[in-house]
Amino acid sequence: MDLDAYVIAHRHEWERLEVLTRSRRLTGAEGDELVDRYQQVATHLSVVRTSAPDPQLVAYLSAILSRARNRSVGTRVTSWRNVVRYFTEVFPAALYRLRWWWLGTMAANVVVIAVMMLWLLEHPNAEQTLMSREAVDSLVNHDFADYYSNYAASEFALQVWINNAWVAALCLALGVLGVPVIYLLFTNIANVAVIGAIMTRHDHAMEFWGLLLPHGLLELTAVFVAAGVGLKLFWSWIEPGAQTRTQALAQNGRTAATVALGLVVVLMISGAIEGFVTPSGLPTWARLAIGIAAEVVFFTYVFTLGRNAYARGQTGDIDASLLEDRVATAS
């Protein structure tokens, strides 16, 4: 990299940020500019450190950023416009762009659950190798139903949300490795298949599905989304397409972060349903209707808002202005 050319190209931005950090009072617009320029200069510092680590320039930019970071505290109120834009454009567009990955993951897991349950129902002796007779009786008669009502609704909803958020986070974080995601999915669906087969064999199928589906539809969908996005991250370094592996990993990694933030809210909703609706005294048809409605809303959200945002060019990636710079070079 031609460091002199890079300095000439960006010095005015550094000087402007320095001016903002030294101003005694900032207007609202200047506060927003301070934060924006902080992000830009942080990118510049990263480029310099990577391509031409000049000690004096690194120290200069680090000092400016330190002052800007301290000054920015309290200078910018989170814009509700950005929050609304995230949930109406960025997040749904990311889900829509990666739809085939998580829809494929969902379909594959549903098939595996069905095959496992059918096999277990046709091989009753397998049940004895998985659980003792006493454990099966306890599961069927009270353990499964008691699981949803042993704790206060708010406490249980929080516990469920934390657990499912952790599973989704693991799928995204370990996605680049591929195999751990498949293992996590198999462990998750194997539990569903085994318990479902046992409950069905003992004539408690209605109870099983009536307690699982109200929250499970949206909850499992969120896990499948996380797994599908994680597997896309894995595939991006196997087959990066027209991009370099670094570019493909960077883009899909940023999109994975976008999806992770949105899934926190999706899992919060499913946790609330599991904590307050699943163990409620509502009839089974009403609980199922709530679960199906939540799932329909999610798919409508993806295939209306997401499709429209994607058609307008939104991909779920961060703004182009915050991406890495094209380094200036001298001719």
Rank of each mutant, 00 (worst) to 15 (best):
I162E: 09
N164D: 08
A165L: 13
A165E: 15
A165D: 12
A165C: 11
W166F: 05
A168N: 04
A168S: 12
A169Y: 06
C171H: 09
L172E: 07
A173W: 05
G175F: 01
V176Y: 14
L177D: 03
V179A: 15
V181R: 06
L185S: 06
F186M: 14
T187V: 11
T187N: 12
N188G: 07
I189L: 10
V192H: 10
V192K: 06
G196C: 01
A197M: 05
M199I: 04
M199W: 05
T200A: 13
T200H: 09
H202Q: 13
H204A: 15
A205H: 03
A205S: 11
E207M: 15
F208N: 01
F208Y: 14
W209Q: 04
G210P: 06
L211G: 05
L212R: 00
L212H: 00
P214R: 02
P214C: 00
L217P: 01
L217I: 12
L217Y: 10
L218Q: 06
E219I: 09
L220M: 13
L220C: 01
V223P: 00
V223N: 04
V223K: 02
F224Q: 10
V225I: 15
V225N: 04
V225A: 07
V225E: 01
A227S: 09
L231G: 02
W235S: 13
S236A: 14
S236Q: 03
S236M: 07
I238Q: 12
I238H: 08
P240M: 09
P240H: 12
A242H: 06
T244C: 11
T246W: 11
Q247V: 05
Q251N: 13
N252F: 08
N252Y: 13
N252C: 03
G253D: 02
G253N: 08
R254A: 15
R254L: 14
T255A: 10
A256F: 14
T258E: 01
G262E: 05
L267T: 03
L267Y: 02
S270C: 06
A272T: 11
I273K: 09
E274S: 01
E274C: 06
E274L: 07
F276Y: 08
V277L: 04
T278H: 05
P283Q: 08
W285L: 10
W285K: 07
A286I: 10
R287I: 03
R287D: 01
L288V: 03
L288M: 12
I290P: 02
G291Q: 06
G291V: 11
V296T: 11
V296N: 06
F298L: 15
F298Y: 10
F298E: 00
F299D: 11
T300V: 12
Y301K: 02
Y301P: 07
